[in-house]
Amino acid sequence: MKFQPERLIQLRNTLNINKAEAARRLNISPMVYGRYENGQREPSYPTVGFIAQTFNCNVDFLYGTSDKTDPDYIIVSSSNDPELYSLIKMIKQDSNVEGRILTYARKLLEK
């Protein structure tokens, strides 16, 4: 797999942000970000994962192996959202809780 710079440009344009803002969100220098976009430098796989997470997209989209931009996963951290993190942790530990919460969620989504 090879990183596709044009996909990064497409994603940035979809987010309606400039290169400087993209670099700021990724906590990298504008020069490094510019090198990613113009293909002079290929980001490491962990960096591509961070780009995907930060810009809420799919890693495979950035590698050009999928046209799907929606992410395959969402990261929930205990420091950013402790209540949701605790809920997910509880669901993972008890399948009965998982079933009850999913049933309740489905009913909420029907309304």
Rank of each mutant, 00 (worst) to 15 (best):
R106D: 09
E83G: 03
D70M: 07
Y73E: 13
I17H: 02
P30L: 06
Q40N: 12
R7I: 04
Y45S: 13
Y33G: 03
P43L: 10
L8T: 06
P43A: 11
P30F: 07
L15P: 02
F61H: 01
A52M: 11
K19V: 09
S86N: 08
T47G: 01
F3A: 01
I28Q: 07
S79T: 14
N58F: 00
M31A: 12
S95V: 15
Y73A: 12
D81M: 13
K107Y: 09
K89R: 15
L108E: 11
K68M: 10
R7V: 05
A22Q: 04
P5C: 09
C57I: 01
P30T: 11
P82H: 11
I51N: 01
E110H: 05
R25N: 15
C57E: 01
G34R: 03
Y45G: 03
Y73C: 14
P5N: 05
K68V: 09
S44L: 15
Q53W: 13
S44R: 15
R106V: 07
L26A: 08
I51Q: 00
D81L: 07
P82S: 15
N38I: 08
S86V: 03
I28E: 01
S44Q: 14
F3V: 04
L84E: 02
D60C: 11
S86M: 10
I9T: 07
I9G: 04
Y63S: 01
V76S: 00
L108D: 02
K19P: 00
K89Q: 13
G34P: 01
N27T: 12
D70F: 03
V97W: 10
M90H: 05
S86W: 06
D70A: 08
D67S: 10
N96E: 07
K107M: 13
E83R: 13
D70G: 00
N27S: 15
K111L: 12
